[in-house]
């Protein structure tokens, strides 16, 4: 009962926080002088990237738990997280070019973060396909867990390899704010919070859906 109440609160918070984040991005944060209004996309681009990559960590941890314990919950959460990760990576890959075109003059650049996100998108896509093409639930969980674990270790190596290759991305957070206006930082963290709540709310719904589906199909 307490759990469902908690998730209800999270659902409501997520719904409220998204418009709040929009308000912070468009009215609270100042207009970027050089890039203009297009820079507003940055808040949602970064927040999506955060969720996209954090989701891989959740999938990774759940995958290990599944291989050891074989409980449905860890498999369901791993799958839910990968599916949502795919969604948010798609958002990153769509907002990135929208921003890059007016700023750098190109739709796409092979910069480490963008390229790593693209590879992560492919790994998530492989994960989602793999789930689709295996019928036996136990096998499906096992194989996807292996992919979840390998993917988690692979992504940093991908990033490293692309960085050896080339880089032009602005370093926003790493260099201690990197010239980002304090109000812009506030707006960014509000967006991060809103998207994290959205992630938790979506993940909870997908896990519950998976559980209902399983109960339906295994009912005598």
């Amino acid at each position: 009962m307490l759990k469902s109440k908690l998730f209800f609160v999270i659902d409501v918070l997520a719904i409220v926080m998204i418009p709040v984040a929009l308000w912070f991005a468009f009215f609270y944060a100042p207009l970027e002088l050089r890039m203009g209004a297009i820079q507003k996309i940055f808040y949602f681009h970064v927040a999506s990237a955060w969720v996209g990559f954090a989701a891989l960590f959740v999938t990774f941890v759940c995958s290990i738990i599944f291989l050891i314990k074989r409980n449905h919950f860890s498999d369901d959460l791993a799958a839910a997280s990968a599916g949502i990760g795919l969604l948010f990576c798609t958002v990153v890959l769509m907002t990135g070019p929208l921003w890059a075109r007016p700023t750098w003059g190109v739709w796409w650049t092979w910069d480490p973060r963008l390229t790593t996100t693209l590879i992560l998108w492919f790994i998530y896509a492989g994960y989602v396909f793999l789930r689709k093409f295996i019928d036996d639930p136990d096998k499906r969980g096992k194989y996807c867990a292996v992919l979840g674990i390998i993917g988690f270790f692979d992504v940093p190596i991908v990033f490293l390899s692309i960085r050896f290759w080339r880089t032009i991305h602005p370093n926003v957070v790493q260099s201690g704010g990197g010239g980002l206006h304090p109000d812009m930082r506030t707006a960014m963290f509000v967006a991060l919070g809103a998207f994290t709540l959205l992630y938790i709310s979506l993940a909870n719904k997908r896990v519950r859906l998976a559980k209902l589906e399983r109960e339906y199909y295994t009912a005598e």
């Binding site: 590879i119 790994i123 896509a125 492989g126 793999l130 692979d154 490293l160 390899s161």
Partner: peptide, 9 residues
């Protein structure tokens, strides 16, 4: 589909 993304590095 599974192998190529992981082999990128």
């Amino acid at each position: 589909l599974l192998l190529l993304p992981v082999l990128v590095p």
